[in-house]
Design a protein around this nucleic acid. Sequence first.
DNA 1: TTGTGTTTTATTGCCTCC
DNA 2: GGAGGCAATAAAACACAA
Length: 273
Amino acid sequence: MDSGRIYFDPSCHGNMLFLGSGARSVLNVEETLKRRPFLRSPEELFDEEYYEEQLAEKKRRLTPEQVHLLEKSFEAENKLEPERKTQLAKKLGLQPRQVAVWFQNRRARWKTKQLERDYDQLKSSYDSLRSDYDSVVKENEKLKTEVLSLTEKLQQGKEAVVEPRSKQKSDALPVDELLASDPQFNVKVEDRLSTGSGGSAVVDEDGPQLVDSGDSYFPCDDYAAGCVTPAADGVQSEEDDGSDNGQNYLSNVFVAAEQQNQEGEPVGWWVWS
DNA sequence: TTGTGTTTTATTGCCTCC
DNA sequence: GGAGGCAATAAAACACAA
């Protein structure tokens, strides 16, 4: 390239000084002398040797007016056809190359900003999705825990019923007493089937029909803490005369548990991976 | 005043298109 | 092959805190 050369272009507005190489800025001679006191006369401006000695490539910023016009032009069209480039250069008293470089850099800045905007947009979109996902996972965990606890209680209830029968021990509690003593079974069927929300009801056609009330299956979070109905309201045992016509919640549950036991797999139940 | 981080101007090298 | 665009980079100019 034309490294370090000084170009004087009389066709431009005023006496313009063009510096070669990287510092091809445009300077009015007077302005140049003002800024560079080491240049004692205009003649020195054109002394290449002197200039190269004294003035290492300097960059000059464009004036606010020049930048304003370039910005306006960029807004209108961010690409620069040769004709427009020449016109702008003339208008601004710059070299076409400078205008081209300015557009080049401006496009780069625009691209960077655009990337930032895109990033922000994607991030907020991601954050929103993430939040939704987290609440679904939380709900899922809660339901899993609930089902797990119910399954355990089911197992306990089944053992409590089956054991006394098989062993025929005299000291075994009657089933209805046993059930009545355990608050977890001491809830009205109506209570268990009551719906609290349209939310995450767990229903399985083949299995026991349980309906979740939303926050918790049980009326109280701690079922053992006094949230039990009197034994008289409790469910009847299988020892009963069957006057409930098989509508008893526990009998259904036990049937399901029996099935699970026989086949080794939960029947009509929920399995998670 | 000085050190440091940011912005602006310009170059270089590579790539694509005509 | 030349022109023009882009990414990477250099370096001057600028802003600002200590």
